[in-house]
Amino acid sequence: MLDFTAVIAQLPRMAAGAQTTIWISAAALLCGAALGLVMCAARLSRNIFLRALAAVFVSMFRGLPLLVVLLILFYVPPNFGVETTPLTAALLGLTLNTAGYQTEIYRAGFLTVPPGHAEAARMLGFSRLQIARHIFLPQIFRVTIPALTNEAVDVVKSSGLLSIIAVTELLRISQQIVSSTYRPLETYLVCGLFYFLMSTAVSSFGRFLERRLTPKPA
């Protein structure tokens, strides 16, 4: 019944697909972190317009299926004379999606830092930026590692959707292999193994970081 020979011959292609999955996910996570931090700052700012903007952003990208975001980003702009490539739509979509979540993660992290920590810094002459950089960021990063790890796993998994707009990542390659080998079950099982290994690697790394950053007993 199960016959993996045809699929095993295609392992190098799948590995290449997995590589694409990894770099797209990593790029989206990093861009999403930058955007998420900016949005988090906006969400916490005193400017009501910025706050509203960030709230809408979060609600929108946490409320929209990534698939729908991708369809919109890929098919809508050409109608307004803006050409898109699958890759830009993919990167943008994944970034916006994870940024929505990361905004909330950072905000929750920010709220765990007692306001007194910033006051103490202000009293010593720290500027706002220095407080953000030296007092908040390290603490926020530390408490948000578990949530960020989950988010990273989610992004790796979500990147499978990029196959819909023909980005040749792991799932897309697997589909191509299925259409040449006619072995869907075997191919997709191996594909699943790849995803599982990637997710496990990400969560193990997250746990490692968490352990490293927890202050060690003196």
Partner: peptide
């Protein structure tokens, strides 16, 4: 203006990291 003033808080407010 307040650069020569230091403050000590009830909750210490040491930075845990």
């Amino acid at each position: 203006v307040r650069r020569n003033v230091g403050m000590v808080f009830q909750q210490f407010n040491l930075w845990p990291h």
